[in-house]
């Protein structure tokens, strides 16, 4: 059996005395699209941020492509990685935020090549070429000179996806990528994500878009109160949920 792209084992995370993640264990296989559902405050964002080591976990283990995130094991001790090693691990995981978080002082193309050129120290001419290809892939090649403030929300989010892809990540994390968008702009972002999934990218998507979860998702995980309540195929979890908490959530969302 091949190594899963993401393996989380008993992940705990607390802020002060408040335990937000109460032992999450799940696997995402290479090429899979995993959708993460759950009520607000259930810890979905926190879990994604732990995968990228933007938050340190308090207990448990996380591996991306067989590599332990944030720590190095020697004997029975875990040593926290140095900043540059963490940075390298982060670059292998792309992240797309609800609020886009594009760099406003850089054009679309500059945003995309920032990672390859500054972090990965790749050749700039090549980075520009690949950056243009990525912008083309998200349908924004003609907007390469625009600053984020000159783009619509949907366009900004597509640039943000291109920026994450520029680092050639093995895993892409999406944290409610369409929640901040006007309804008529949601489709263009979901289309880009759908074609990314079709190209074989491993993706973990926190979303409230049930249509996307059904059509593109391979598995759906339902989280509540810092715990994984139910996992399964989209048809099973969304169509015929076993757990009462899942049922209650879905009846509210789909109402």
């Amino acid at each position: 059996m091949s190594e899963p792209m993401l393996r989380a084992r008993n992940v705990h995370k607390s802020f002060g005395h408040l335990e937000i993640l109460k032992g999450i264990s799940l696997e995402v296989q290479a090429g899979q699209v995993a959708c993460l559902l759950g009520p607000s405050g259930s810890g979905k964002s926190t879990f994604l941020r732990c995968i990228n080591h933007l938050e340190k976990i308090n207990d448990g283990e996380l591996w991306v492509a067989g590599e332990r995130i944030g720590y190095r094991r020697s004997g029975n001790k875990l040593h926290e990685l140095k900043e540059n090693q963490t940075a390298k691990q982060r670059a292998a995981v792309g992240m797309v935020f609800q609020q886009f978080n594009l760099f406003p002082h850089r054009t679309a193309l500059e945003n995309v090549i920032e990672g390859p050129v500054v972090v990965q120290k790749r050749n700039k001419a090549q980075a520009l070429r690949e950056g243009m290809e990525l912008l083309d892939r998200v349908g924004l090649a003609d907007k390469y000179k625009h600053y984020p403030a000159q783009l619509s929300g949907g366009q900004q989010q597509r640039v943000a996806i291109a920026r994450a892809l520029a680092l050639k990540p093995r895993l892409m994390l999406f944290d409610e990528p369409t929640s901040a968008l006007d309804p008529e702009l949601v489709g263009e972002v979901l289309d880009v994500m759908g074609s990314l999934a079709a190209s074989g990218m491993t993706m973990i998507v926190v979303t409230h878009e049930m249509g996307f979860a059904k059509e593109v998702g391979d598995v759906v995980h339902f989280m509540a109160d810092g715990q994984l309540v139910e996992s399964g195929s989209p048809t099973q979890v969304l169509g015929n949920p076993r757990e009462t908490r899942t049922q209650a959530f879905l009846s509210k969302v789909l109402a």
Partner: peptide
């Protein structure tokens, strides 16, 4: 803080984040 977060997520070090993302803005 989203700017720092995004910079970290593309693998920037703290110094790079400061120099290329936070200070210019």
């Amino acid at each position: 803080p989203g700017q720092t977060e995004a910079a970290k997520a593309i693998g920037m070090s703290r110094l790079q984040t400061m120099r290329r993302v936070v200070l210019p803005q």
